[in-house]
């Protein structure tokens, strides 16, 4: 059971890293996530169904997410639409596109096709139990992504993203188009989100176009929970705490799912809990700020 929380936390942690990139670094609250997460899932599912292989499926899912991000950023840049609206537009359109990708189906089971989970189980059979094999695999995958992101944010280009979220004028003053940077940033972020969706579909054993409903809020909740865990201005710590936050979030959801019935809670209440988590986090953060000012 415990491994399950960690595996889910790690998979959703990839999505939370994407949300962290747009919300915290770019200061571009991007709601495309609700559409790009299931997009990753359905692209992966279709690839697996057509025996295109896990690797190609992963690449295509990531690329699909990047494209979705480009669309949002382009709507925002070219039509001067606020980011929230641009994200909602793309997310809404993606709902139909995702059904199209699944050839007019709303979901697709992946139980009987070869996928990354069955692949790991096969390779490690007789060595360690399935659950631990999954856990080790996802720890490695998420650490790799985290490491690549850390390096990315240390490059000259990566630094610009930090400046863009903080002070757009400064980016303009360096002779860099903020529009181009937003395209790259929102694209990469949604690529990560779609990647997370692709893994989630294989872990859950199905892809569903409704998989992404409210996912941006769970990502945001993960980011905020992580922020209570460690304080730092180092990017490697910032990305680490996002992943820890995602695991913590999944643990809280797990508690709600399995022990919630004591207080008459059903799984349908989990979205309410996610939202309340964000609100409480905001409240505590505000309270800390006010306290910090007066002392």
């Amino acid at each position: 059971m415990l491994e399950g929380i960690f595996v889910e936390g790690l998979i959703y942690g990839i999505m939370a890293l994407g949300v962290f990139f747009t919300f915290r670094i770019l200061d571009f609250p991007d709601l495309t996530v609700d559409g790009s997460f299931p997009m990753g899932a359905v692209i992966m599912a279709v690839c697996l169904e057509n025996n295109m292989g896990i690797f190609l499926g992963t690449i295509l899912a990531f690329s699909g997410g990047v494209l979705a991000g480009f669309v949002t950023a382009a709507i925002h840049n070219k039509l001067k639409v606020p980011h929230l609206l641009a994200g909602i537009l793309t997310m809404t359109m993606l709902y139909s596109i995702n059904i199209r990708i699944l050839s007019n189906r709303a979901n697709l089971p992946l139980m009987n096709v070869k996928n990354v989970m069955s692949f790991i189980a096969e390779k490690t059979e007789g060595i360690i139990s399935e659950e631990y094999a999954y856990l080790i695999f996802f720890i490695l995958i998420v650490l790799l992504i985290k490491l690549l992101l850390d390096i990315f944010f240390h490059t000259d280009m990566g630094l610009i993203f930090g400046a863009l979220g903080d002070n757009q004028q400064m980016v303009v003053n360096q002779g860099i188009s903020p529009d181009t940077m937003k395209m790259i940033g929102v694209g990469l972020s949604n690529g990560l989100v779609a990647l997370s969706g692709a893994f989630a579909a294989q872990y859950l054993g199905f892809a569903d176009v409704n998989l992404g409903q409210g996912i941006v809020i769970s990502g945001l909740a993960s980011v905020m929970l992580g922020e209570f865990l460690i304080k730092s201005n180092k990017i490697s710590i910032l990305t680490l705490r996002v992943i820890l936050g995602a695991i913590l979030y999944k643990a809280i959801m797990y508690l709600g799912r399995f022990y919630g019935y004591h207080i008459n809670m059903t799984p349908n209440d989990l979205k309410l809990i996610s939202g309340l988590l964000v609100i409480v986090s905001l409240f505590i953060a505000n309270y800390k700020k006010i306290k910090g000012r007066s002392s």
């Binding site: 280009m157 979220g165 360096q174 002779g175 860099i176």
Partner: peptide
């Protein structure tokens, strides 16, 4: 308006050291 407040001094100086588009180089 001249600096990014949530970033370190060295990051700020690195950002403005060279003008124009930046690639994936550390």
């Amino acid at each position: 308006l001249g600096t990014a407040s949530t970033m370190t001094l060295e990051d700020n100086m690195m950002i403005t050291y060279k003008k124009g588009f930046k690639w994936l180089k550390i």
